[in-house]
Amino acid sequence: MSAAELIADFRPQMIKFARLQLHDDAAGEDVVQEAIEAALAGIDRFAGRSALKTWLFTILRHKIIDSLRERGRTVQISSLERDEEALDETLDGLFNASEHWRPDTRPRPWADPHAALEQRQFWLVFETCLEVLPARTARVFMMREFLGLETDEICATLSLTTSHCHVILHRARAGLRQCLTNGWFGAEPASC
């Protein structure tokens, strides 16, 4: 299936999602159209259906945020920003007061990560972990690691400072690492 056919395939789901978020059918179709146009820039590099879908929905979430912002629905915006703060708090909680790993949260080597790649279930966990990241955090991570864009390019596109970009990428990696540890590799207490 071509990328265009896949997008056509996902369009009804995207519209349903956007309408739910915006409570407005016309606005929902508009943001889906904008998201598809924005997503087309990098679309040739997405051979996998799951990756393409995750990418489309991440862009769509962004367009929805923009649309909400234009309409001045500040309540939803601040709740999305709280997502990032909440994740930072969770990640900070892995460290003790002197910023070293707590004994129970210290990273341990993952058991046989290569075997995980062969399992379809692992990829579902990976996708879910991406989906539960805050929308902007996930988008920056995907631009960097899925599309392979340079950090400067990402910062410029999203009007972020370089240091903010690094903060977001760190949050994404640490958040995904933690999510995969909890969701797939198991969280055994460390002993050292």
Binding site: G48, F146, L147
Partner: peptide, 8 residues
């Protein structure tokens, strides 16, 4: 990088 090229 591998995820992008996956076709499941």
């Amino acid at each position: 990088r591998g995820f992008v090229g996956r076709d499941d």
